[in-house]
């Protein structure tokens, strides 16, 4: 999942995959802006079947590849 997300970010930003490390802050480092965030939301919906609710739009969920993966895993695991 991590590699899929990294490849997507690299593809839409023209930034080398090696630069986009697991914990690099995507927004603070200027890798992603509003459009990047919107593209990612569409990507994880269409490619991974995960719908992002309004309440999910937090820095904790989208700060880095690591936090995005944790968010996706949580969303994919049905709540008990």
């Amino acid at each position: 999942m991590k590699e899929q997300i990294r490849a997507f970010i690299s593809e839409i930003t023209f930034i080398d995959k090696e630069t986009i490390t697991d914990d690099v802050s995507l927004f603070e480092q200027g890798i992603f802006d509003s459009m990047g965030l919107l593209s990612l939301i569409t990507f994880i919906d269409e490619e991974m079947g995960v719908k992002t609710d309004d309440g999910d739009l937090t820095e904790e969920n989208f700060k880095s590849i690591n936090t995005i993966v944790s968010f996706l895993e949580r969303k994919k695991t049905p709540a008990n």
Binding site: F27, F32, D33, S34, G36, L37, L38, L57, T58, E59, F62
Partner: peptide, 9 residues
């Protein structure tokens, strides 16, 4: 969303 640290949506 205004005071969020994410870019505006």
């Amino acid at each position: 969303f205004i005071n969020s640290n994410l870019p505006p949506v």
